[in-house]
Design a protein around this nucleic acid. Sequence first.
DNA 1: CTGTATCCTATGAGATACTG
DNA 2: CAGTATCTCATAGGATACAG
Lengths: 129, 129
Amino acid sequence: MKKVQKNNEADTVCAVDYAFQRIGGKHKGRVIYHLRGGVKRYGELRRSLTGITPKMLTQVLRELEQDELITRHVYLEVPPRVEYQLTDTGRELLPFIILLSEWGRKQMGMPSLYACQPELSSLVIETRE
Amino acid sequence: MKKVQKNNEADTVCAVDYAFQRIGGKHKGRVIYHLRGGVKRYGELRRSLTGITPKMLTQVLRELEQDELITRHVYLEVPPRVEYQLTDTGRELLPFIILLSEWGRKQMGMPSLYACQPELSSLVIETRE
DNA sequence: CTGTATCCTATGAGATACTG
DNA sequence: CAGTATCTCATAGGATACAG
């Protein structure tokens, strides 16, 4: 529902602003980060993203979907299964998210996760974050 | 004033979350981006960051200063002069902000600014953003 | 020139309960 | 399992005016 561009005046659009509107907010970055390894189900995400309420998770996923950063695939089964994964556009954000995460880890005095492993997508890391 | 860590429970801190808290918000990314070229004065920033109110600019600058991402240097002159610049920690965020900006430009259908120039810090780019 | 001081409002986001 | 539906609240952020 959020307008990507809501600068009211003839205000020049800034790329940094634009990008932050698409990945800003409290949870979007984390969702993208947690989808770095490939497909994940709703419940998996809910468990990974500690502290998120189902309402917020759904909302964030819908926004990311509308922005074409993730795809949503519904399987008509019982019990239902819904899978999310990054689009190509979304995947282009990964280096940035990972860089940010690395910076954050460093600032927090935590060890880097990737320093020695150039291949990221194949890693399955369960540090609960 | 903002607590860097305000997760109430024994909630595990996430590096991505942490980072977003430090550079999130509507203007922080832009401020960092605009300081990429070195020292800037308050008025310069105000003119660069179209649409920002003095209150918000001051607030953002103070938060970034507290977070040790920028420094503030006051010259006791008349008229007063105050200069801001990135700290080393802040500068470490530049690759990431620039990556984000490039992504945003691409998404917006704008040409890349940096594709052919590995040296960024020396560039003086006046695209008003 | 470099900010403060007020006032005000939209909305991001949490808590809780319920559903196909 | 994968979500909706309400209700509520704090606060990020804007407008405007003033100040050293």
